[in-house]
């Protein structure tokens, strides 16, 4: 029983981290109708920026304070991500207003490859450390209830908490602010939104900036866990089944989807894996999402699309 609970908790915490990346997809799609394939590359770019600036800034300024170095690196990386967001809007998206969804999708694919390459060119392709003081050692709980207790990964726990706070903040932003409502209006219909005076260009810059900052949070957390390195861009692939399951337009859907995928893949790997040779968790997540689509094509919380003839 204790092992099942450990696996379940491990899955839930992994799921929260997937949600963090899935949020980037949802934000952009919700506000611009674009499925942003560059989200993983943005996470990588942000993580590399954070890792290298936290290394370079103390060298440049001759300081020895880890907290200050990290704080400055976060500020610089946030500025970098805002600049990236602005450049994406200015150089690419502005020229694709009112184009087909497939065109925009391909554009984000291109942006993704570009960011992958240029990120490694500027910051290097090694594994870089992000040390923001996340606890690494595990903690044992409920030792009096279960023999041997239940192991909790403190780092995952802290990461899941940060992710939950970010989700809460974004939900409030989308539901309770004028900018949030404008973002939703743009997502519904570009032309209609423009016709009532919503500045499309500015809205897109805002949403890409928010997605960029979300990528920075995800990059710092994932980078602290795995090191800032190329494979972080593939973490986005883990978030795809999450958005399929949760629905592309729903922030709560991204969270619930993440939790279901996280738990599903961990339980499947641990309990089904040994019967089929193991290594199944990646494709199992996709299979789970596909099965779900058969019954609910719009995802858990996605908006049902009805075309009237």
């Amino acid at each position: 029983m204790a092992f099942f609970i450990e696996t379940l908790l491990g899955g839930l915490m992994s799921g929260m981290l997937y949600s963090l990346v899935a949020l980037g997809f949802v934000l952009i799609y919700k506000a611009s109708g674009v499925f942003n394939f560059a989200q993983g590359a943005m996470v990588l770019f942000a993580a590399l920026s954070m890792a290298r600036f936290s290394e370079w800034i103390p060298e440049w300024l001759g300081m020895d304070n880890l907290f200050m170095a990290n704080l400055l690196a976060i500020v610089v990386s946030a500025l970098v991500m805002l600049a990236v967001a602005w450049l994406i809007e200015y150089l690419v998206l502005r020229h694709l207003v009112n184009q087909e969804g497939a065109t925009l999708l391909m554009a984000t694919l291109g942006i993704g490859y570009f960011l992958d390459g240029v990120g490694q060119t500027i910051f290097g392709s090694d594994i870089y450390k992000i040390d923001v003081g996340m606890p690494k050692e595990p903690v044992m709980m409920l030792e009096s209830v279960f023999e041997g207790g239940i192991l909790i990964n403190k780092e995952d726990f802290v990461a899941a908490f940060i992710a939950a706070m970010l989700v809460l903040a974004l939900t409030i932003f989308f539901q309770k602010t004028a900018t949030g409502r404008a973002l939703r209006a743009v997502a519904d219909d570009h032309q209609a939104a423009q016709s009532i005076g919503i500045p499309l260009g500015r809205i897109w810059v805002i949403v890409w900036c928010v997605a960029g900052l979300t990528a920075l949070v995800a990059g710092i957390i994932w980078g602290s866990k795995l090191g800032a390195q190329f494979s972080l861009s593939t973490v986005a692939l883990r978030a795809l089944p999450v958005v399929i399951l949760g629905g592309l337009t729903s922030v709560p859907g991204a969270i619930l989807g993440g939790l279901i995928i996280g738990v599903g893949e961990k339980l499947s790997e641990v309990y089904l894996g040994p019967y089929v040779g193991g290594g199944i968790e990646i494709w199992f997540a996709y299979m789970l999402a596909l099965v779900f689509l058969l019954f609910r094509p719009q995802g858990l919380f996605g908006e049902k699309i009805i075309d009237r003839v």
């Binding site: 696996t7 494979s231 973490v235």
Partner: peptide, 19 residues
Amino acid sequence: LLPVAHPGVEQKATWLQIR
């Protein structure tokens, strides 16, 4: 035998099995 899929960044389930 505990296989880890490429590139190997997701190993939580593997190490839970080891535990």
